[in-house]
């Protein structure tokens, strides 16, 4: 039994966690999210290179959240998701034990959120090479070409909202697209409906997105929709020097008001 299984088994045994969220074997050589609630299930948890999915969205999921205390097997994406959720007061110290697996394969058990911050301090987040490539390609386009690219991609959007459901930071109990009095965003998956949906979502994620790419992964029609929030994250890093989901206190770049702000649009 590997370290992950032993730790999960212990946490369940001592009652420190009611469920350990992690990864298990999936269909045909893939991995899937797995939930260990007892010793037998703890034995089935795995961790290897295939475990790239960000699991942080499970922390607030209605069917799981009431089971807090939770434990979660975490890669860097998941760690960042948790820190970001903590900075938005969705998780507090003591709600969750994080089992971070570092690049040496060691399991680091973080009981306090500050311990996650220490792990993250060692890491320089990077986006996937293929995402970088597509972003560079988009950057090199003229605004008109870029617009055409996105309009053509969004033609295929079917408004299933898988992107939203997969995102660790789309936790609103009522999403803006579901508000119908007044209706902010057209419901139909047509050009304007799709565009308004994606612009709204990207803006709502800007400065919050932890660059995990989960939204694009989830899209059943392979729209690289994650590039919108990821590009905004890059812009925010360039302008303000902040990266979301690395430190609890430093995370609220676009929603922090300072009385000495050089812009006077609020007052």
């Amino acid at each position: 039994m590997g370290a992950i299984n032993e730790i999960a088994a212990r946490l369940l045994e001592t009652g420190e966690a009611k469920v350990v969220i992690g990864y298990g074997e999936g269909s045909f050589g893939s991995v899937r999210p797995a939930f260990a609630r007892n010793q037998e299930e703890a034995e089935k948890l795995i961790y290897d290179k295939r475990c790239t999915q960000n699991l942080a969205m499970y922390v607030y999921k209605k069917e799981i959240s009431p089971l807090r205390k939770l434990a979660i097997v975490a890669n860097v994406s998941t760690l960042r998701g948790i820190i970001r959720l903590a900075s938005e007061n969705q998780i507090k110290n003591g709600d969750i034990i994080t089992l971070y697996i570092n690049e040496l394969g060691e399991v680091i058990e973080c009981k306090a959120l500050s311990e996650i911050e220490i792990c993250l301090a060692e890491i320089t987040p990077e986006i996937k090479p293929e995402d970088k490539e597509l972003i560079d390609k988009l950057d090199a386009m003229t605004p008109q070409e870029r617009w055409n690219f996105w309009i053509s991609e969004m033609e295929s959007c079917i408004k299933c909202y898988a992107c939203r459901q997969a995102c660790p930071l789309c936790y609103c109990t009522q999403c803006a697209v579901e508000v119908n009095q007044p209706q902010w965003i057209p419901v139909a998956a047509n050009t304007s409906g799709n565009l308004e949906w994606h612009i709204t979502r990207a803006m709502h994620l800007s400065g919050r997105c932890v660059e995990c790419g989960q939204c694009g992964e989830a899209c059943p029609v392979n729209i690289p929709i994650h590039l919108l929030p990821i590009k905004l994250a890059e812009e925010i890093k360039n302008i303000y020097g902040t990266v979301s989901g690395m430190k609890i206190q430093e995370s609220n770049t676009l929603s922090t008001f300072k009385p000495d702000d050089k812009e006077n649009f609020i007052g």
Binding site: E63, C160, Q165, A218
Partner: peptide, 16 residues
């Protein structure tokens, strides 16, 4: 019960 935890209600399955 396990499905309740794992499925994230994303609707991709129904749309495809």
């Amino acid at each position: 019960d396990e499905y309740a935890m794992r499925c994230m209600g994303c609707s991709a399955c129904a749309f495809v």
